[in-house]
Design a protein around this nucleic acid. Structure first.
Lengths: 155, 155
DNA sequence: ACGACTCTGTGGACATGTCAACAAAGCCCG
DNA sequence: CGGGCTTTGTTGACATGTCCACAGAGTCGT
């Protein structure tokens, strides 16, 4: 590994573009959500699967899988959201280890306030800049990258 | 904005792939850096431009530009790195408002320990998964997206 | 000189994310 | 049954990131 091949100029440029884009897009979305819905990016990430579930109820485990977070991060975030009145926590009937998270009316109002402008922002900075074939290409490439990551994670 | 057009299935898939990939790649890199060099992703981000500068000295302002961080974030991070012995801070001769950040031998050792495996990880999960034409395409698309973001940031 | 404005960095308060240890409940196999 | 293993979620300590107000130094026009 001492002989690891360095990035050449062309590669460094791509890597730099990737890092800068992910950093700045994240920042732009977080700010928009805070401004238009009074919610953080982390709040919003959880509000999405909750708002799509029947009765706005999702088990912690499923919520964690939906957003790709580990248990600890999810637990902290749900607790914070409960204190802000966005969700409540209830016992899980099926499995006493489990916990159900329920979207409150206030939580639903928050995501409904934030979502339209969020989607508009995603379009503005992402989809509107790419033709349909480019979007297809990008999907294929990103899914391939994610696949390698996932394959190594289990192996 | 109530009539904002939602994402269709194809678009949602791309958006999901983008979010998942950026999240998981970030996590993989942070862990690798911590494991092999004992440094955080934030540490590493600053160590890179410092290690490339003459004498390992860079002014705060330039460091902030190099990594795309705001002043506050940079100030906090440099202070933390100083307590860990990775850098020192010195007065700036040219401009009394300024501050020079200097890489310590310990800081240089840290990045030299982390870098080879970091580059290998970047190759493993990114470049090795993409053909050269695909890398060219991706560079073009990402730079276009970054351009739109930058254009709006100043405007 | 001086006053208004800008540039640069700091610091406190707070939200978020990570890690490791823990506890309770389910599961499986003797 | 009963003892180990797995699954699920929590917690505390700590690192990181953001917002905002501030302070000191430079700049520019008068």
């Amino acid at each position: 590994m001492a002989g690891a091949r360095w990035l050449d100029e062309r590669e460094a440029r791509l890597w730099q573009a990737y890092r800068a884009l992910t950093r700045d897009l994240q920042r732009a979305f977080d700010r928009q959500l805070e401004r238009d819905g009074g919610v953080s990016g982390a709040d919003y990430a959880l509000l999405v699967p909750l708002s799509e579930a029947p009765d706005g109820v999702v088990r912690m485990r499923e919520l964690g899988r939906a957003v790709g977070w580990d248990r600890s991060r999810l637990s902290h975030q749900v607790r914070r959201m409960e204190t802000r009145g966005l969700v409540t926590r209830e016992e899980c009937v099926d499995d006493a280890r489990g916990l159900m998270v329920r979207l409150t009316p206030s939580g639903r109002a928050a995501i409904e306030a934030a979502a339209p402008e969020h989607v508009a922002t995603v379009r503005r900075y992402f989809f509107d800049q790419l033709s349909e074939p480019e979007q297809e290409t990008l999907t294929r490439l990103l899914e391939r990258l994610a696949g390698k990551l996932a394959a190594d994670a289990e192996g």
